[in-house]
């Protein structure tokens, strides 16, 4: 019974931890995908000659942060707008001249897809001549960064709380196991058993409980994941399950929890 409680506690805690990690990793993936979409748009002054535009393009593409740069002429910009407006093209009919500016669309290399790098780059771009305006969706990126930071903090707090409460539960259930076998331990001491000899079976037990608890947690999580994917009729590639290294990590944490709990219990209950 005691073993069941300990294994159950480990499984419960690790299942919640795994669920938090699963959500966290999927959000992280999503954020990475969004970040790839982040682009900086440089609106150019009117009437720039082609060589000036080409020089500017070369200069910007040589910047460390820039992955690729696309020039959108005034004509191309108008064409895109018309496509976006679809059936409302009539809005543009009265225009005598093209009011849209030419622009550059810049995409960044992955290491620079963060708010700090974007801000630094934008400052440098603003210093270039012939640039009329720079747009990069600052508010949206900041919201994304703050939201992700918050998720990280919540995940960390949940992990910390769960870790402490699981260690507490495990150490107490192991204490109960030690109490139940107190007589046997005392007899072993009487006949000259070393502390290591006495403790080893408990450590092995704790290790196995941790491992079984972790496997149970992963199985439960996988079941819930499959159910969730089928219920919301999603492609399983859009929400991914925990990667193998994280699964191994959870198993490691399970074993660690078991061992840590038994170490704490033994500190108080085995006299030298």
């Amino acid at each position: 019974m005691i073993h069941l409680i300990t294994t159950g506690s480990i499984a419960f805690s690790l299942a919640i931890l795994g669920a938090v990690l699963c959500v966290f990793l999927n959000v992280d993936d999503l954020v990475k995908k969004w970040r790839k979409e982040v682009s900086i748009v440089l609106f150019l002054e009117d009437n720039l000659n082609p060589s000036k535009i080409e020089n500017l393009k070369t200069k910007i593409s040589e910047m460390l942060e820039v992955d690729n740069i696309l020039y959108i002429s005034k004509e191309e910009a108008l064409k895109r707008l018309k496509t976006q407006l679809e059936n409302q093209e009539g809005i543009l009919e009265g225009l005598e001249t093209n009011p849209l500016p030419a622009s550059f669309e810049i995409r960044l290399k992955p290491p620079f897809q963060n708010i700090q790098s974007i801000r630094t780059l934008v400052q440098r771009l603003k210093g270039l001549s012939a640039i009329d305006e720079v747009q990069y969706g600052e508010a949206w990126i900041e919201r994304l960064t703050t939201g992700f930071r918050l998720i990280k903090l919540v995940a960390l707090a949940i992990f910390g709380l769960l870790f402490m409460s699981t260690v507490f539960i495990i150490s107490n259930t192991i204490k109960l196991a030690i109490y139940a076998r107190q007589e046997e331990l005392e007899i072993m001491r009487v006949v000259g058993a070393t502390n290591l000899f006495i403790k080893t079976p408990f450590y092995i037990e704790a290790l196995l409980q941790g491992l079984v608890g972790a496997l149970l947690a992963i199985s439960i999580l996988f079941g819930i994941y499959r159910l969730f994917v089928s219920k919301v009729q999603m492609d399983s590639s859009s929400i991914s399950f925990l990667p193998s290294d994280v699964i191994l990590g959870i198993m490691g944490v399970g074993i660690g929890l078991g061992l840590f709990g038994s170490l704490i219990s033994f500190r108080r209950f085995i006299r030298t």
């Binding site: 001491r189 006949v191 000259g192 058993a193 070393t194 030298t272």
Partner: peptide, 10 residues
Amino acid sequence: HPSKIPHLRR
């Protein structure tokens, strides 16, 4: 030393 006690008890 405590670690030697089991050996003496044997």
